[in-house]
Design a binder for these strands. Structure first.
Length: 570
DNA sequence: GCCGTTTTCGGCCCGACTGTTTTCAGTCG
């Protein structure tokens, strides 16, 4: 039982409490504790053994006891009781936009549906609109939401997928028969969400390993198995497919299982034309030929450059590799800083000093503090006066550093009428300006597009934050004419953000690639509200690589001096 | 359920927007 698993359970308890109509502060306490547990460096199991759980803010007497019970017994009676009362699938009601605790509670109390299917039937028969406080609009929203849930169901966000895959790989490595192991599939390609997890493991005796795997501690249900691969449902609710091969097949198997399907189909046609064969273990050079010992060798023998997994989507990468014109993809170590971070001056949790110290520890040359602007009240957006106070503190902090700079920035609201939250005189004083939309999501495409464009046309705006506003699995992008936005970004030289938060990953890879074609520049930022989330940069880099970006396409690969020049561009 | 205290209760982010109503409750960021 690790922190992440405890956090999952606490989040589920919070949802069930909401549906049952318990105090919203109680569910909030569970959510806050879950959030703390998943972001702290401290290990809950160890703290529990040492009786120090309550040192984590947000964990008091009651939650410490519950964690203790989970850690020692693997179970939690309170959690089991709640799940007996409310079918776990109803949790998903809360994922539907427009449905919160109260609406979920009304539906539960009046209809007691045993699962989502029963709820859907009720909605189709127009019975939900008869409930107090629910009308036709809400009923339609629920139907739309259920459809969206069905199509996105069980796709893990990237950070969760990496966590779960890490657990599985650790287990694979612990088996004595296995000499090597790798993630493959969509996770290795860095896709924004992952539907199932694929692994390739190497063993001299695959069958023995397969038998051992059938008793893996995370196994919930064995789906299929033969003498070289098995497919299982994990206790985390996601499927894992594990292929075990002998050493000589490792490279070809890894290439094959990494996919994508489209990439492999194209590669297969080419390989066949060169006399190769294909099977479920991947490509092979026919009877006499020796198997390639690495993916690099495999691609080379097929007459092309090595294709990094993020590019293997069947979007022209094979032709480019054959011509020798693949991009030199962006790497995490190319980034010299982060240009969108929040502090406790608005809705972040850390002080400016904490952020600066952490950024410097990471070897960044700069970090832009971009707190929210005044009209985003919920996030305690900064007024003009507070901005001047914050600038003063930033100035004092910067005096302490010779090798690092905090940039005094702002994430300025693009208001519903398209105007910005501050006038030009103030924006001109900021080191860096990120402009973002946090309101009026439901406006029509023309209005939203014009809002973003008018922000880009302001000469003080450097970056458009999370340009399409999507939340993966929860909220669709707002309707903007992305082609037009990309063209204006290229024309005005405004950078578009690749927001690295695994909930957003906004822009998506196809738009990034199109933007690059049009000459748009990008900024890979975290939008971190807590210094732990500075780690999210790795996901933004994967997304950028999937969009074929190179170092020179990204503004925060520049040194501080170069970036300063860029920020002062006309 | 947590936390801080004018210290064992009472407050916990708050204003705009939407949908359901007919003056307001619920949701969201």
């Amino acid at each position: 039982m690790n922190n992440w698993e405890i956090a999952q359970i606490f989040n589920e308890i919070a949802d069930l409490l909401d549906i049952l109509g318990e105090s919203p502060y109680k569910s909030r306490a569970y959510r806050r504790a879950a959030h703390k547990l998943s972001t702290t460096y401290l290990d809950a199991v160890q703290l529990s053994q040492e009786g120090r759980l309550q040192e984590i803010p947000g964990i008091g007497d009651a939650l410490a006891k519950k964690i203790q019970e989970l850690v020692t017994t693997g179970k939690l009676r309170y959690y089991d009781e709640l799940r007996e009362k409310v079918p776990a699938s109803l949790r998903q009601l809360l994922l539907i936009p427009g449905i919160g605790a109260k609406t979920a509670q009304i539906i539960y109390q009046h209809l007691r549906p045993k699962d989502l299917a029963e709820l859907e039937t009720a909605a189709r028969e127009k019975r939900l609109r008869e409930l107090p406080g629910i009308g036709s609009k809400t009923e339609e929203a629920i139907l739309r939401g259920l459809e969206a849930l069905a199509s996105s169901k069980k796709r893990l966000l990237l950070h969760h997928a990496f966590t779960v895959a890490g657990e599985i790989r650790d287990y694979l490595k612990s088996l004595s028969g296995i000499t090597m192991t790798s993630s493959a599939g969509s996770l290795r390609r860095g896709m924004e969400t992952v539907g199932d997890l694929d692994f390739v493991a190497v063993a001299h005796d695959p069958l023995t390993v397969i038998k051992e795997l059938a008793t893996a501690p995370f196994l919930q249900e064995l789906l299929t198995a033969d003498n070289s691969q098995l497919s299982l449902m994990t206790k985390w609710g996601i499927r894992a497919d594990i292929l075990v091969v002998q050493p000589e097949y490792y490279a070809t198997a890894l290439q094959y299982i990494t996919g994508s399907k489209e990439h492999n189909e194209e590669l297969c046609v080419l390989a066949r034309s060169l006399g190769w064969e294909s099977s479920e273990k991947g490509l092979s050079p026919g009877q006499e030929g020796q198997l390639p010992s690495s993916e690099e060798e495999l691609y080379s023998r097929l007459g092309m450059l090595y294709i990094p997994p993020e590019l293997r989507e069947g979007r022209g990468e094979i032709q480019a590799a054959r011509k020798g014109i693949l991009p030199y993809l962006l790497e995490l170590c190319d980034l010299k800083g982060d240009l969108h971070v929040h502090s406790h001056w608005s809705d972040g949790v850390n002080s400016l000093e904490e952020l600066a110290v952490e950024a410097r520890r990471r070897g960044y040359q700069y970090l832009a503090v971009t707190d929210h602007s005044k009209s985003l009240h919920v996030a305690r957006g900064l007024t003009e006066d507070r901005i001047w106070e914050q600038r003063e503190e930033i100035r004092r902090l910067n005096q302490r550093f010779t090798d690092f700079r905090l940039l005094a920035g702002i994430e300025v609201e693009i208001r519903p009428d398209g105007s910005l939250d501050f006038d030009d005189d103030l924006l001109a004083e900021m080191d860096i300006v990120v402009a973002s939309i946090h309101s009026g999501f439901n406006q029509d495409e023309k209005t939203l597009t014009e809002r973003v464009i008018s922000a880009m046309e302001n000469k003080h705006v450097d970056i458009i934050g999370h340009p399409t506003g999507r939340l993966l699995g929860r909220r669709e992008p707002y309707s903007i004419d992305i082609e037009q936005v990309l063209k204006v970004a290229a024309a005005t030289g405004t950078a578009l953000e690749i927001n690295s938060s695994p909930d957003r990953l906004d822009l998506c890879d196809r738009y990034i690639r199109r933007g690059k074609e049009l000459g748009v520049c990008f900024a890979v930022n975290t939008d971190a509200h807590d210094l732990h989330y500075l780690d999210d940069l790795q996901y933004g880099v994967l997304q950028a690589r999937r969009g074929w970006l190179e170092r020179d396409d990204v503004i925060n690969t520049m040194s501080f001096e170069q970036l300063s020049d860029w920020l002062q561009r006309a």
